[in-house]
Computed example of a mutant assay.
Amino acid sequence: MFTQQQIDEHRERLEQVVATVHHFSAAIFILTFIGYGLAVYLWFQDQTWAGLIVATFSYLFFRQFRSLSLGLARMKLREREGFAQTWQLLDEALKSERPQAVMLSLETRLRAPREPE
């Protein structure tokens, strides 16, 4: 998916992308469980349908958290200098793999110890 040369060339920007994606993923995770809490509250207030609707939307929101967090990271970092090539690299990987697989591969490659030159 990514060559070592690509990782080395874009390392700093890729690390920023990963950190930003994790930031948005955590926010989505928190919002999802707030939604679940609201659904439980509505359920106990005898508003069963409203609770079911909120729980369903929370679930659907959570199901999209990888692609949504990647999209939000793209919006946040798109104007920064040098990120156009980094996003092209990620877009190429996303053409053949799901966002979860791309991020897992990227994080694994970034965390791998560097070979001495």
Score class of each variant (00 low, 15 high):
residue 1 M to A: 13
residue 2 F to N: 00
residue 2 F to I: 01
residue 3 T to F: 10
residue 5 Q to T: 15
residue 5 Q to D: 07
residue 7 I to W: 00
residue 8 D to A: 14
residue 8 D to N: 05
residue 9 E to I: 08
residue 10 H to T: 01
residue 10 H to C: 04
residue 11 R to T: 03
residue 18 V to R: 03
residue 19 A to D: 02
residue 19 A to L: 10
residue 20 T to L: 08
residue 22 H to S: 13
residue 22 H to G: 14
residue 22 H to E: 11
residue 23 H to N: 06
residue 24 F to W: 09
residue 24 F to A: 06
residue 26 A to I: 15
residue 27 A to P: 02
residue 27 A to K: 10
residue 30 I to M: 08
residue 31 L to I: 14
residue 32 T to R: 13
residue 34 I to L: 15
residue 34 I to T: 15
residue 35 G to F: 15
residue 35 G to Q: 13
residue 36 Y to D: 01
residue 37 G to Q: 11
residue 39 A to H: 01
residue 39 A to R: 01
residue 39 A to E: 01
residue 40 V to S: 03
residue 40 V to H: 04
residue 41 Y to P: 00
residue 44 F to A: 02
residue 46 D to K: 14
residue 47 Q to L: 08
residue 47 Q to T: 04
residue 48 T to N: 03
residue 49 W to V: 11
residue 50 A to H: 01
residue 50 A to C: 00
residue 52 L to W: 12
residue 53 I to L: 12
residue 53 I to C: 06
residue 53 I to R: 06
residue 54 V to I: 11
residue 54 V to A: 02
residue 54 V to W: 01
residue 56 T to F: 10
residue 56 T to V: 12
residue 57 F to W: 09
residue 59 Y to V: 12
residue 60 L to R: 02
residue 61 F to K: 05
residue 62 F to A: 14
residue 62 F to Q: 13
residue 63 R to W: 09
residue 64 Q to Y: 02
residue 65 F to T: 09
residue 65 F to N: 03
residue 66 R to N: 08
residue 66 R to F: 11
residue 67 S to D: 07
residue 67 S to A: 08
residue 68 L to C: 02
residue 68 L to P: 00
residue 68 L to H: 04
residue 69 S to C: 05
residue 71 G to Q: 03
residue 73 A to H: 02
residue 75 M to W: 05
residue 76 K to W: 11
residue 79 E to D: 12
residue 79 E to F: 10
residue 80 R to E: 05
residue 82 G to S: 07
residue 83 F to V: 01
residue 84 A to F: 04
residue 85 Q to G: 14
residue 85 Q to P: 11
residue 87 W to R: 05
residue 88 Q to I: 02
residue 88 Q to E: 13
residue 90 L to K: 14
residue 91 D to K: 11
residue 91 D to N: 13
residue 92 E to L: 11
residue 92 E to C: 08
residue 94 L to R: 15
residue 94 L to Q: 13
residue 96 S to A: 15
residue 98 R to Q: 04
residue 99 P to Q: 07
residue 100 Q to T: 09
residue 100 Q to W: 10
residue 100 Q to L: 11
residue 101 A to F: 06
residue 101 A to S: 06
residue 103 M to L: 12
residue 103 M to S: 06
residue 105 S to Q: 14
residue 106 L to P: 03
residue 106 L to N: 05
residue 107 E to C: 10
residue 111 R to F: 11
residue 112 A to W: 05
residue 112 A to N: 01
residue 112 A to D: 00
residue 113 P to S: 14
residue 117 E to V: 08
